[in-house]
Design a protein around this nucleic acid. Structure first.
Lengths: 370, 370
DNA sequence: TTGTAAGCGTTATCAA
DNA sequence: TTGATAACGCTTACAA
């Protein structure tokens, strides 16, 4: 291990609190008290200490402080992943969320440590090892061993985001996914659609997409006609959406609308339909979920269920700060954010019987007569 | 400060290396040696130590280790920001980059600490305070006080990403932006375009967008006709792109192609033109930069300059690990990644004289005769 | 092959 | 209002 050396060969040491104390002619305790604003110091002394701090460009060693106080002022953001990071890199969702969180906790002097952890992991060493003050887990499932481990931790606040963990007594922040999906489906039903496909990522039990499925089903069941739910399950990615669109055309040619569980998926569908010459919304309506910033800039722009992603990061940040400060309630907190419908260009009433044009091209000509 | 207490009122202490030593009946040194695989321990002892570690769910305290060794195994990712985080939340670029970096350094046991720092900041306390082992700065400019401060640090490796700092002797990883932009512009010239607008974010001197400007200018100047460069400067965001498209139609109605310095901007333009009824690529071609995953899924899909963003994060991670291991060269390293052109649907030859349709609608009828 | 003891830079406790 | 001292949990000379 080579030591960092100056030209003179002396080991380069950073300025310590002790150095400041020595220079000012007081004890380390006093310097510490000044730095931490404990007040029991004369103004004189405080001023001199502050001056020495500036002069020597002293920066307190947070590592030592953490060791002593067992408070790191670090919050861990843990993202459960599966093998090859499916949907981890691509999803603009994460960044918006994390930047909202970062901004909020930074204002209280906290830092964010990012960690992607295998969902099958049996423990998350970083939490104890680094004395994290709090943890945020994004997108977890009850079935993950990782989730089980994390839920057992009772020595520091943990917040599960976008995770439905009904049997676990943990803090959660979610969007009301079921309601959002219900809104989307009801809107389509209101426009007159009856054949509506539900397109989602993997439907884990108690997953976000599963909640959205329940909202979709409920909306359908409230409709007096016998609307059958149709589920198409794929991955949450642009490309999966594109491919799903092509499949839809053949497997469900009579469909007039698609409820996608994510804008990413919806945008892929938009593209897939375009490639096949299916016009949106004239032949088929599409509705997304999330309202990522690009949703308002697609062609056609995307009708979607809006959720404030950055705001969610901020809400999580505030909740975490509160819990860390010990102002948390004895039992777990749950926040469910309200999504709302944003109508744009990708939805319209279904083609009428007269001008109906099935998705599948084969008998297109026939239907075009009007 | 309330201590965490168990029901019995005893302070809850985590298992330490000393506890393990005591239980096994050896010294802390031996346990440490086992844990760090230093080898000078009998296999017997090693086995017993390992067993005790597992039994007691011992996790080493990285904070204490850091304090002692002055190596934190933490890498800081610093993102210079201006006031209200313009283009920080929205840009999918960051996430892809950071996740590539994270993945790479995690495999060597390093963690990522994320920090957004004001560009005007005079110091980055976190670096010394947390004993960071390395730092990555994304998108910096020479004129930032922050950059000046960071460049002076010589006690740990710092890598500047997507930053052109010609007067500074620092490690950099960039994409060959000038060349990429040159490729884009040359491609359009080759298609026959002569009125090509350069649409960018703020053109800081030595900024990424400025480099791209130089590539654009060079391509034009190589063309034998007197192609005048036309610069339109805005913000790097979807919405700015959309608005710019509307402006373009009036300010430069004779333009037949747009070189945008980012896909985000280009996608905004796509949308803006759509809103105005300008057909892409028939009336106007658009070419982006970055090839974010959505670029291949827009309507029309985006011709763009591809750069491997996640790969850039990985390259930075590898370089950082090398530098941290002390295998770095005495002088600064520079890596320039090669971008390439990806042709999709948003580009085509310009409208011919006969079927020419200016962007501006006013005299559209006149030109429509054929 | 193993152990002793000092120290990393801070803060908490207690005393002055 | 201030200071001496002992930790926090680990690693590392150096000694045995």
């Amino acid at each position: 291990m080579k030591a960092k050396q100056t030209i003179t060969g002396r080991i380069k040491r950073s300025v310590t609190l002790r150095d400041i104390a020595r220079q000012v002619g007081v004890s380390p305790t006093t310097v510490s008290n000044v730095l931490n604003g404990r007040g029991r110091v004369s103004e004189q002394t405080a001023r001199r200490v502050h001056q020495a701090v500036v002069e020597n460009r002293f920066i307190i060693n947070a590592t030592a402080r953490t060791l002593r106080q067992k408070q790191s002022k670090i919050v861990g953001v843990i993202i459960p992943i599966m093998e090859h990071l499916i949907s981890f890199h691509d999803n603009p969702f994460y960044w918006a969320f994390v930047s909202g969180l970062q901004q909020t906790i930074a204002s209280a002097g906290f830092h964010v440590m990012l960690d992607a952890v295998e969902y099958s992991s049996e423990s998350v060493e970083i939490i104890r090892s680094r004395n994290l003050d709090g943890v945020v887990v994004v997108g977890s499932h009850e079935s993950f061993p990782l989730t089980q481990q994390l839920a057992q931790i009772d020595t520091l606040p943990i917040i599960f985001v976008d995770s439905y963990l009904p049997t676990m007594n943990v803090n959660t922040v979610t969007t009301d996914d079921r309601f959002g999906s219900y809104l989307a489906t009801r809107y389509l039903l209101g426009l007159g659609h009856r054949k509506i496909v539900f397109l989602s990522g993997p439907l884990y039990e108690h997953g976000v997409d599963h909640e959205r499925w329940l909202g979709y089903v409920r909306a359908l069941s409230e409709q007096d006609t016998a609307c059958r739910p149709i589920a198409v399950e794929t991955q949450m990615s642009l490309e999966s959406g594109r491919l799903a669109a092509h499949r839809l055309i053949y497997e469900h040619p009579d469909v007039t609308a698609v409820v996608a569980t994510g804008d990413v998926l919806a945008i892929g569908v938009l593209r897939g339909f375009f490639e096949s010459g299916v016009r949106v919304p004239h032949q088929c309506s599409i509705i997304g979920f999330d309202d990522v910033s690009i949703a308002s800039h697609t062609v056609p722009s995307l009708t979607t269920i809006h959720q404030d992603i950055k705001g969610k990061g901020e809400a999580v940040g505030r909740m975490l700060l509160r819990l860390i400060a010990g102002q948390g309630p004895p039992q777990s907190e749950h926040i469910s954010l309200n999504p709302h419908l944003v109508v744009r260009e990708s939805t319209a009433p279904p083609p009428t019987v007269l001008n109906r044009l099935p998705l599948k091209g084969g008998d297109g000509l026939q239907s075009k007569r009007q």
